[in-house]
Design a protein around this nucleic acid. Structure first.
Length: 306
DNA sequence: CGTCCAGGTCTAC
DNA sequence: GGTAGACCTGGACGC
């Protein structure tokens, strides 16, 4: 078993709470990720350029470090370098959260985040986050899980030494694999319903280069441009665009949906429904981090305070 | 059984 | 530009 460490520090030296990062978002429990909330560990199968995907297990290491174990035969140096880069992206370690923490430190209700919260799990590719987001729209979480599981199980490439059955040990499907899948697969196996054609044409557009989703990670791009490009994609509306932007480190927009609105009202102990404008006002002080502050506010109890 | 609706989006006015 | 209606699926409900 090959293993290595990843230092848990942000670019400005910010602390990183691994447990809170892993439990930051529901997508960390969608295939090909497998979250163990009790243990505070994450198993995930990720692509490795020039080779088969690899399955890795992430958990706490020595203080201030994450421990990564690579399943299967020993990876070479190049594979380890690639895995390290991919995992740093999954844990969102490249993002400087010091500005967010500076504001939160002055906010009694959110000062707790400064010990390392607010770093959300990302998929290895923007494509994967976009597809998963489309699979969350207008349906129950169980259906979202069903759709994503089918995509990984039937279209994902198996990792080196993976089991032959089930989704475990398979990477998220490439755009090419999803574009080549028959429409009946989306309907009869993935049970994606009307989302099927959206997912397939989305994959087609990425596969043939019509759209470049990875380019949306470019920090120099204004939020407005990113939002416009996302809204132009099939199946992505205001909610989905804001959600994907959350995974791109663009937190200007708040995620306002049928879960976040009532959850906010409940945590506020507000008897009446809180207006969207009221929510926006509460988090305006966070400026470009407003959406992140809102998300942290909503998910504080996802991890036991310790 | 039928209706409603979930971490909405698209099309047609 | 803003607003109805339709839309796949599958649980949760009320009758």
């Amino acid at each position: 078993m090959t293993s290595f460490d990843i230092p848990l520090r942000g670019p400005a030296g910010e602390p990183v709470d691994l447990r809170r990062t892993l439990a930051s978002h529901g997508t960390a429990s969608l295939p090909p990720m497998l979250l163990d909330e009790v243990a505070g560990t994450l198993e995930v199968t990720v692509p490795v350029p020039g080779g088969r995907p690899r399955t890795v297990h992430i958990g706490a290491g020595r203080p201030g470090r994450a421990r990564v174990e690579v399943r299967g035969r020993a990876p070479g140096g190049r594979a380890i370098a690639s895995l390290t880069e991919t995992l740093r992206r999954i844990l969102n370690l490249e993002e400087d959260l010091s500005g967010f923490y500076a504001v939160a430190a002055t906010d009694p209700e959110l000062a707790w985040v400064t010990t390392g919260a607010g770093r959300m799990v990302h998929a290895p590719t923007v494509f994967e986050d976009v597809v998963k987001t489309v699979c969350t729209t207008n349906c129950s979480w169980s259906l979202t899980t069903k759709m994503v599981t089918a995509l990984v199980e039937h279209l994902g490439e198996p990792a080196a030494g993976a089991l032959a059955e089930g989704w475990r040990g398979r990477a998220f499907p490439t755009p090419e694999a999803m574009a080549q899948a028959d429409p009946t697969f989306y309907r009869d196996v993935a049970r994606a319903g009307y989302r099927g054609p959206y997912l397939r044409s989305l994959a087609q557009m990425v596969a043939d280069g019509t759209v470049d989703l990875e380019a949306l990670r470019e920090p120099a791009l204004p939020d407005e441009d990113v939002e416009e490009r996302l809204l132009a994609l099939p199946g992505l509306g205001p909610y989905a665009a804001a959600h994907v932007m959350l995974t791109l480190g663009r937190y200007g927009r708040l995620i306002l949906d049928s879960w976040t609105r009532p959850t906010y009202a409940r945590l506020r102990r507000s008897r009446r429904a809180v207006s969207d404008a009221g929510i926006a006002r509460r988090f305006r002080r966070y400026g470009p981090h407003a959406g992140l502050a809102f998300w942290c506010y909503l998910t504080r109890d996802w991890v036991e305070e310790g």
